[in-house]
């Protein structure tokens, strides 16, 4: 039981708890913060798996950008609810909703995790190779040779998403004034 493995188990355990809080935290703001924390822990997991570059990217993209933008989204969409409890969090499930949003999702989730873990246990995985590889150099060269076209397309995709988000979110004052 070497240090890396211990570190992984600790990070993983905390990440599971933290992800659970994302779903169950009564305040949406807290959930967002738990999400950021989970992202940090996953970045740690990446490091233990030898993917330092991805860990950095994870911190930059998820913790830095996604979490922040989600926080902005929360503030813009429901300013009043930021400090209060999420009123939607606690409710009684009745009728069809009891099955739809109560029993079936639990069953589905449990079944999914159970099936996946069973499969993982059954497959004879190769042993972890150990050793150290310069993964940053590897990714860099692959990204600009084999995967150069998907890479450029990803850039275009981001640009389109940027434009799209602005177009969607920009406030149409004229319409608002007319009460539509």
């Amino acid at each position: 039981m070497d240090a890396t493995r211990i570190a992984f188990i600790v990070l993983a355990a905390v990440a599971v708890v933290s992800a659970f809080r994302v779903v169950t935290a009564p305040k949406i703001m807290h959930a967002a913060l738990w999400l950021g924390f989970t992202f940090m822990l996953v970045a740690g997991v990446f490091v233990t798996l030898g993917a330092e570059f991805l860990a950095a990217a994870q911190v930059l993209v998820y913790v830095g950008a996604v979490t922040t933008i989600i926080l902005f989204g929360i503030m813009l969409s429901q300013a009043a609810e930021v400090r209060s409890r999420d009123p939607l969090q606690r409710e009684r499930l009745e009728g069809a909703a009891f099955w739809r949003r109560g029993v079936l999702p639990v069953l589905a989730t449990v079944a999914f995790v159970a099936i996946m873990v069973t499969v993982y246990m059954r497959v004879p995985w190769p042993a972890p190779p150990g050793g150290v590889i310069d993964t940053v150099r590897l990714i860099g060269s692959a990204l600009f040779t084999t995967y150069v076209i998907p890479f450029e397309l990803a850039a275009v995709l981001l640009l389109i998403a940027l434009v799209g988000a602005i177009v969607l979110a920009v406030r149409d004052d004229n319409k608002e004034e007319q009460g539509s």
């Binding site: 996953v42 589905a108 995790v113």
Partner: peptide, 21 residues
């Protein structure tokens, strides 16, 4: 590379996915 057996991170992935789901 790593010394962690593949099952560990896969299980973590499954659990996190399940929670998200």
């Amino acid at each position: 590379m790593t010394t962690i057996p593949l099952t560990y991170p896969l299980t973590l992935g499954a659990i996190l996915f399940g929670l998200g789901l």
